[in-house]
Write a protein that binds this DNA or RNA. Structure first.
Length: 431
RNA sequence: UCCUCGGUAGCUCAAUCGGCAGAGCAAUCGGCUGUUAACCGAUGGGUUGUUGGUUCGAGUCCAACCCGAGGAGCCA
């Protein structure tokens, strides 16, 4: 019996008889020859069935194979300059595992809605595999970054008792006879963790019931959120900068083939080296005004504004000290300028927008109690959170990075929907 | 929630002024020893999103609704 091998390793088996187990990606026939493009999850290899080399049954099977039929193929690996990967398989035997029904996704063009309806099958296409492998690498790189720098992974809960923002953006869930909400962020729990472990992070799904219908929004998305005790805003920006550079460069190194499949211009990613430019919100407003944008101090940035700002730099830009008025209750006010918060966003280049948001947290008990009240939030619901300020409160800071926005940027995608295996959006929760 | 555009074969689309429902791909059958989204020939495939209206006649015009796409707003 020939050895079962994966296509990614095929170069090691030149001249040897091997077995592949996979699916028929495409087929071309020519009388006494069948060219079977077989994929096995690690790559695609052309398997050549020549009538003179195989039994009549095997040749007939090759003729009848439908797209995505599952097959076990045996044959000899041979070098061929006509192959995109330098090798092909001279088939000696074919075994059908299952004859696929008429496959809905043909090699021709399809619309977005159709492909999303068939997302469970669309995952088999080479492009989707490339970008989801980039996603896998991004998550691994993020976790390795923190794991090797003294951070403890602390998983945040998904059921949460209360809102840290308005309840309109929360998904309520019936919890026995009570209502709980799907988490919007693990941050508050990471603050508890930072007071216990010093440096912690979480990585998991978060949920926003926003009726956003843009290329940057999902209702279910993944965030990685570090939180560090005895860290201020500057330290937080240092961490975000070093983290982002490390993750981007690692993906660039380890996923070159995938980025090439996606036809990504990687010179733009190679430029992601620290230090990143840091500008205050006030400077950002001035920069926008000087390019003719009608925006006033206090306004939020629109998608176009973020694009204009990011295009002024060749690498990610950190915007810090936004007006405190529209910011979350836990943000610490800048003691130097009480109208702004000690917070920051990292905007990705090329118009990909905010990929990191974070900052220093309010660590003073009476001030935090005042902010809760100002935001019309009940102190009772946050009593555990206030405990963190009662028992050994320290300055601390952290941030959250959206995995999908990161992948979308790295892969040069137009829309976040392809950056997650099964996207959940307004009006779409299947498959 | 608002604005714009769209919904015709399994898929991507066409159908002139309101006058016979079309093509490519896919499928099925046949041909070809080197194909690279192979090619060549043939065949089958339709409640034109739903409901109602105008008309001799509606894919086409009108109304409501459903669904989708793009954008805006919203967005720790």
């Amino acid at each position: 019996m020939p050895e079962w091998v994966y296509i990614k390793d095929i170069a090691q088996y030149e001249g040897q008889e091997v077995e592949l187990r996979g699916w028929l990606y495409n087929k071309r026939s020519s009388g006494k020859l069948h060219f079977l493009q077989v994929r096995d999850g690690t790559g695609t290899l052309q398997c050549v069935v020549f009538k003179g080399d195989v039994s009549a049954e095997t040749f007939a099977l090759g003729q009848d194979l439908t797209q995505e039929s599952s097959v076990v193929v045996q044959g000899t690996v041979r070098a061929d300059t006509r192959s995109p990967i330098g090798f092909e398989l001279g088939v000696s035997a074919l075994h059908l595992t299952q004859q696929a029904h008429a496959y809905p996704i043909s090699p021709k063009e399809h619309g977005v809605a159709f492909l999303l309806d068939h997302r469970h099958l669309w995952l088999r296409s080479s492009r989707q595999q490339a970008l989801l492998r980039v996603r896998s690498e991004v998550i691994k790189a993020c976790r390795d970054y923190f794991d090797t720098r003294g951070f403890t992974l602390l998983d945040a809960p998904i059921f949460t008792p209360a809102a840290c923002e308005g309840t309109t953006t929360l998904f309520p869930v019936d919890y026995f006879d009570d209502t709980v909400y799907l988490t919007q962020s693990g941050q508050l729990y990471m603050e508890a963790g930072a007071m216990a472990f010093g440096k912690v992070y979480c990585c998991g799904p978060t949920f926003r019931a926003e009726k956003s219908k843009t290329r940057r929004h999902l209702t279910e998305f993944w965030m990685i959120e570090p939180e560090v005790a005895y860290c201020d805003l500057d330290g937080d920006m240092d961490l975000a900068e070093d983290f982002l550079e490390t993750v981007v460069q690692r993906v660039l190194t380890n996923r070159q083939a995938e980025l090439q499949t996606l036809e990504r211009d990687i010179t733009k990613l190679a430029q992601v080296r620290k230090p990143f430019p840091r500008i205050s919100y006030g400077e950002a407003i001035e920069r926008l005004q000087s390019t003719g944008v009608d925006i006033q101090w206090g306004d939020d940035f629109g998608g176009d504004d973020e694009t204009i700002l990011s295009e002024q730099f060749d690498r990610p830009v950190i915007v810090h000290r936004y007006p405190i008025a529209n910011k979350a209750f836990y943000m610490k006010t800048d003691p130097q300028h009480t109208t702004v918060a000690l917070c920051m966003d990292v905007l990705a280049p090329e118009g990909y927008g905010e990929i990191i948001g974070g900052g220093q947290r309010e660590d003073d008990l009476p001030v935090l109690q005042g902010k809760l009240e100002a935001h019309d939030l009940s102190e009772e619901a946050f009593s555990w959170y206030l405990d963190l300020r009662r028992y050994g409160s320290v300055p601390h800071a952290g941030f959250g990075m959206g995995i999908e926005r990161m992948v979308t940027w790295l892969c040069g995608l137009h829309h976040v929907r392809e950056s997650i295996p099964f996207p959940r959006m307004l009006e779409r929760v299947t498959p």
